[in-house]
Design a protein around this nucleic acid. Sequence first.
DNA 1: ATGAAAGCGCTAACAT
DNA 2: ATGTTAGCGCTTTCAT
Lengths: 375, 375
Amino acid sequence: MTTEPTHPGESPSAPAEGEWRPAGMREVAQLAGVSIATVSRALNEPSRVSAEMRLKVENAVRSLGYIRHGAARALSLRRAHAIGAIIPTVDNARRADKIAALQMRCRERGYSLVLALSQYDLSIELQQCRSLVEVGIDGLMLEGGEHDPAIYELLEKRGIAVVNTSVYDPAAAQPNIGFDNSVAARRLTDHLLDLGHKTVGMIAGPVAGNDRAGGRLAGVRAALAARGLPLPPDLVVERPYRIGEGRLGLRTLLARQPRPTAVICGNDVIAIGALIEAQAQGLDVPRDISIAGFDDLDLAAQMPPGLTTMALPAREIGELAADHLIDSLEGKPVAHATEVEVKLILRGSTGPVPSEASPLGVKNPAETRERDPAG
Amino acid sequence: MTTEPTHPGESPSAPAEGEWRPAGMREVAQLAGVSIATVSRALNEPSRVSAEMRLKVENAVRSLGYIRHGAARALSLRRAHAIGAIIPTVDNARRADKIAALQMRCRERGYSLVLALSQYDLSIELQQCRSLVEVGIDGLMLEGGEHDPAIYELLEKRGIAVVNTSVYDPAAAQPNIGFDNSVAARRLTDHLLDLGHKTVGMIAGPVAGNDRAGGRLAGVRAALAARGLPLPPDLVVERPYRIGEGRLGLRTLLARQPRPTAVICGNDVIAIGALIEAQAQGLDVPRDISIAGFDDLDLAAQMPPGLTTMALPAREIGELAADHLIDSLEGKPVAHATEVEVKLILRGSTGPVPSEASPLGVKNPAETRERDPAG
DNA sequence: ATGAAAGCGCTAACAT
DNA sequence: ATGTTAGCGCTTTCAT
């Protein structure tokens, strides 16, 4: 297999029959009839080289299929041209957007993306950070603002740029790009409160080690408190970000007394679960219960009756994160904290509080498993 | 900021007041009172070093917070300990699983994951591949088996391992791990055919440059052909993998004559869209129309009436891909093609073909936007 | 504008 | 079992 030189003009360097070795700068220089330093310059600072040389080099590069050796470059430059990202999981569509945007922007600017997952575990996150440092990253994107301080120490000592994302806090020690989760949650809650709801429940995401989840919970609580309303522990459940867990969460809440007339969910995945569960229990959304989430997943718009949610500009955050990191590496000025806009998207899943007269009992759960054809 | 040595025992190397530089092997060797080679050995092949030395080195490493310099290591070893992955997008939950599994397995085995996106474009894929080669990957995971031949040439010349995933083809030139998309689609179609359906439509994913989408379409066609049934061009629409597009696709299909009684979708995202659209049009699924997909997303199980789908073991594929690549790098024997099991999951969205007498007309699309309370 | 040569931090012969 | 040393492929002073 490896013995056939199917390709033209590619290995003028291997005289004997030995293993073919990818062409290096030396070979390029030789073929172009210039010095190795000129090749380097022609590649990195074309302007500092005569047009003639540049052409010769370009041709040699092309005909040898030369590709720079990143590790050597990194070693010499003491800059890997790589950005790391540690995220809890990839399984959320909005986070996938963020990573995609980050990757594309990095690529555009000549950086590659090394990805690591923390699974919502701060100690795994630290480990992964060490690995990334070893690989040789110049900058690191983190999710949220709650991290092992050892991470910051490590990064600072080695001059690695860092940015926390999906949180916004001008007072934080680390640069960040995002929005204030608490404020966003408060706005969402206010919407419900404006509709007359007084008994509001929450299905939060797991709060431990997750300041975004914690912030949202705090925001809901604050909005209620501002109107003299309580958020009894009874009406807060914490569930992982999965549809089935959202269903479970709502089931729990529906069993509580007093039963909430509105439920705010830690994100849309949970909210979709809650919506499905409500409908499965024969409740009409929003007539019997209002449901809202965060993220504005595609599904939020499509799923009847439409899910009211806070839209979070994930792509934008990813892009901004890449720019922040790379700008800062290039010595350009960067904002310490950048706020992106969240948007309250009103859809059919939230409505006025039910009249007092409405029955609290759950209707026959089976009957709504199939849609009524409304004939 | 950088001037405060908040940390104990960390910079015995910087005598003057200058910039602190991360400790290298030299410093470790010095502190441990051994040679630099011993440090290297203690780190890489602990067994080849006396217990005493090992301990001294370990202590020095710890107290200096030493972290290996990956680029230097890669340069010397001519092995980057990095795996690349090029995927079309991350936005599919199953693909996210695959990437997560790949990443975790790589990490476990001492490799990092460099991620690149091709956006379903074969020429972008080639570009990204070049970038990855430049970064210095030892192995590459690709999605599907349809790629620019230049990719294979490039990789082969440089001795970079490659594996195609989510496809299975023992006859293919490149190693692969996955399943036969055509066979899977055929099985799914047979299920519908067994239920008596004769007019089957398909909402395929974009087929260009995507052999998985193409294979599934071919499988549906083959299953029909095997029973002497046609798949008229009229009943095939191609739509991007988004819920809204799935809705659109179904709308198109419902307008065709004869109208299909069963629709197979390129994946679950499209299928969910189709399901939502069917219900929005007042159709009962599966009484009026059967719908099936691929992937077995969480949502497939949760969304009433439950989506019949082919479950694809994405995590397993990701894990196997990591193992295949790394095993092969380590000189271990690896299978050229590995087949993973897909599983037909029967749920409520597929059922017997409607009786001939059923009306073909579409009911009022508006009325079912809100659920009938079935009171 | 171009070339020669000294490293970047590590590993792996090759000594001892 | 441990130490010495020559590169790995590139960038970058420093000469010219």
